[in-house]
Design a protein around this nucleic acid. Structure first.
Lengths: 113, 113
DNA sequence: ACTTTATTTCAAGGATCATTGAATTGTTTC
DNA sequence: GAAACAATTCAATGATCCTTGAAATAAAGT
């Protein structure tokens, strides 16, 4: 059950904070160091949490110079929301599918994850 | 942060199964024994999981004869969905509030939890 | 090449978790 | 009140989790 993995990944204070920050950052993502200083987390602790989020498919990484850029995977979050919505309403979804797009700002910013 | 508690409560296979079953059962709920046999869980193990769900505000209990009737708390689930939806979309909710009602069947069945 | 910066890997620690068996409490029925 | 039934409490165990410090890897600047 993949939903449990996503739930478990988000069921931890620091990790939820990290994810929220990445969601705020949008599809561009942000470097690990920036997350570390924003949330005041030790870099190795942060790596540990990033790994869990990544294992759950909630974030992606890419390297940029010596920084690692982490970004939220909205796709997975959507799937989780869909699953919960479905299972919250006893099989008969009472809401019209929550489509969860990146965020505020950019005009025509594709989420090509 | 109360969202983490709800997430943690649902982030476990057996517990998620239990909750899903209770959601299916609707506001009437169902006796612990029925849940135990439906999911093939030892009664003491089940009590353990019920406790966690209850601590997270996701279920309620009441006694009926010698049975304990557990029921899902849709209110809490709604709050969780709302929180996640909000935080999934970077503060600017892109969905019009997911209202999560009990289930299929009953006409005019208030969720007065 | 050497140093600095950014992040990860590794090993160790205490804490929390999920399951189990045995014993207990509460309720109904005889 | 004794037996049967429904569920909980308690103690123990192995597993997983989160954090930490020290060392390693990777890229950039000098």
């Amino acid at each position: 059950m993949e939903a449990v993995a996503a739930l478990a990944a988000l069921a931890q204070d620091n990790r939820l904070d990290v994810f929220r920050l990445l969601v705020e950052a949008g599809p561009e993502g942000m470097p690990a160091g920036a997350v570390a200083s924003a949330l005041d987390l030790a870099p190795n602790t942060l790596t540990f949490h990033f790994d869990r989020l990544r294992a759950a498919g909630l974030v992606t990484v890419r390297r940029d110079g010596r920084s690692m850029i982490y970004a939220a995977r909205f796709e997975t979050m959507n799937a989780l929301l869909a699953y919960l919505t479905e299972n919250c309403c006893g099989g008969a979804p009472c809401a019209p599918a929550v489509e969860c797009k990146p965020a505020v700002v950019s005009r025509r910013k594709k989420v090509t994850a």
